[in-house]
Design a protein around this nucleic acid. Structure first.
Lengths: 340, 340
DNA sequence: AAACGAGATGTTAGCGGTAACCTCCTCGTT
DNA sequence: AACGAGGAGGTTACCGCTAACATCTCGTTT
């Protein structure tokens, strides 16, 4: 800016360096078509005047913003937050800026507001982290306007979808429990309107059934430690509680609450009952007992999502689904019984 | 877009509706100077053509982007992440978009890259979440260009600064411990190049001293559960370990690791030794034992930071510092002894 | 010596909006 | 009947940059 509040533009630099604005543009963009000494003169003028190029003007001229929208429909849960960050990082690596818009609520008004917001920002494509159902339709408006990829939650059959493979994760859990000799396992699932929750449950039940084991009772939580705690209390009063040898909590927070309830009632983990979670938060390994869990590769998911989106922008086709396999982290909250 | 890839503009809408582009602009911006039936005609044309206004063009014309940069220099720790989200929310409430740029490393190259990145995006101001020292100078370049507010970590005497009052938090901890009758308390601090860490330690020590109590041994951690665990092991071998009645860990993660170490060695918390953390993560209340801790009001801090920044943009002065008081959350990891 | 071609730079016309100013028309006044 | 005011809308000139094409300068080529 000069004293009068007018911003320093290319023209100012051009005048100061005794060249045309186009030459300044060339210097800014590193064109090889400029003589070294001219480059120098222009550079000097730029720093002397404190010139800063206007990205806005550039974007308008080239008709690209190189920015992606990332809309997230939830609060500060570990999973969604990790996704957000990993997408931002991946986008930056690909030369795009990430416009993050997050809404905590899910009522129609909020969703609309968020979508308008993201459209207003001239993004070239959008990654939607919308793990609960019923947002699919609300996002239709977006899809008509620009490329969309769904992350972690399906948005419709025709929307490219990238996620951690929750069904595989559930299967991993069941497998591990079976390996350790457990034959009766209960489950504290996530909210049933979360696709991720349903898939973890499905994978778990599926693997159990295919091993001839009947899936045990299921409680529905809301991801919070408190809901895990409540489920734990109810579990303790279940008629067939005695038979339950292991519990699969659909995330680590609920596993924590669950273990708190068990602990409070003097039930030892893993001696009396094994517990396994999902997420592998940085804390999970330090709980007492150290929590066995499943780790999702958020970085890989984020990177894949951005890659898909960028490929769509560059005219590629919107390949169908991509599921990133999770991996089991075995710690001490699951006991190993003799083969039963 | 029409078939040929040209985007639908105001002029297209204007032509379709039989008005001038300016009238379209008036409709888009809700000017009252347009006859209802004209508004109608224009609206119809807009939806028919799938018109979407170009924020970029608008920004260029009005010479404002209404967006703020948020640069964060660290990974997915609870505190920083919470700040990020709270700032984004606050910015949106104030009608600004938040351009989030985060770097995990701290080497000069990275910092420069991040700063350039944020400048390139035409933000009107920047909130820097830079809790470690030595970034102050690196950020000087930024400050010369546009308003900056420092969040959680001081950036220099002349940069407006908003943070949670860590010294008060440290004092709160000491006070609570004293109240509970503890006279010998050890401390696992955060990294010494974090201002927050130093302040928590300082407040804690200060309050202790002013009560005539000698601050106990101090270990330096890195915020991770693992470093808390290591500190715990060392603590157990300290010559004066017998005298230590309480330990203050500078965040909940380290408190968790610490408790794991104590537990492993059969030391009971809080019976033998009390533990208190800092942060109040969603999990803290469900640990065993439930962790006493200090809660920072991230929402308030974020809101205040944005408010400061916006006021700077609108010509206000950059008031000095603002510290938001934290509050103590008392749970069961601290035992109450008789007054000693 | 004149024409040639390539490198270095300048000119002009947008990109899609907004702002400021101008015009036209319709009323109510006097 | 002439006049002024205000509502409704149109015109023109930017905003700060890039793209495409035009121009100028020389060292070569013939």
């Amino acid at each position: 800016m000069d004293g009068r509040g007018r911003r320093t533009t290319m023209y100012d630099v051009a005048a100061a360096a005794g060249v045309s604005h186009q030459t300044v543009s060339r210097v800014v963009n590193g064109s090889p078509q400029v003589r070294p000494e001219t480059v120098d003169r222009v550079r000097r003028a730029m720093t002397r005047l404190g010139y800063r190029p206007s990205g806005t003007a550039r974007n308008l001229a080239v008709r690209r913003t190189r920015s992606l929208g990332v809309v997230s429909f939830m609060g500060p849960l570990f999973g969604p937050m990790s996704m957000l960050l990993s997408i931002e990082a991946a986008a930056r690596r690909s030369g795009y800026a990430a416009q993050i818009v997050s809404a905590h609520g899910l009522d129609a008004g909020q969703v609309d507001a968020v979508l308008e917001e993201v459209l207003r920002r001239d993004v070239e494509g959008v990654a939607v982290i919308a793990p609960t159902d019923g947002q699919a339709r609300m996002v239709d408006g977006l899809r008509a306007q620009l490329p969309v990829v769904a992350v972690e939650g399906r948005l419709g059959d025709d929307v490219p979808f990238v996620a951690s493979d929750n069904e595989a994760g559930g299967r991993l859990v069941a497998e591990h429990l079976l390996d350790c000799g457990h034959r009766t396992v209960a489950h504290v699932s996530g909210p049933t309107d979360w696709g991720e929750a349903r898939q973890r449950t499905a994978g778990w039940a599926d693997r159990l059934v295919s091993a001839g084991v009947q899936p045990g009772p299921v409680w529905v939580g809301d991801w919070s430690p408190e809901s895990g705690y409540r489920a734990g209390l109810e579990l303790l009063e279940h008629p067939r509680w005695e038979e339950v040898g292991a519990v699969f909590a659909a995330n680590d927070s609920m596993a924590l609450g669950l273990m708190a309830a068990l602990h409070r009632s003097g039930v030892e983990v893993p001696a009396r009952v094994s517990v396994i979670g999902y997420d592998n938060t940085p804390e999970s390994g330090w709980l007492q007992p150290a929590l066995s869990t499943v780790e999702q590769q958020f970085d890989a998911v984020g990177a894949a999502a951005v890659e898909r989106l960028v490929s769509l922008l560059e005219g590629g086709d919107g390949a169908a689904e991509l599921l990133i396999p999770p991996r089991l982290v075995s710690r001490s909250s699951v006991s190993r019984l003799g083969r039963g």
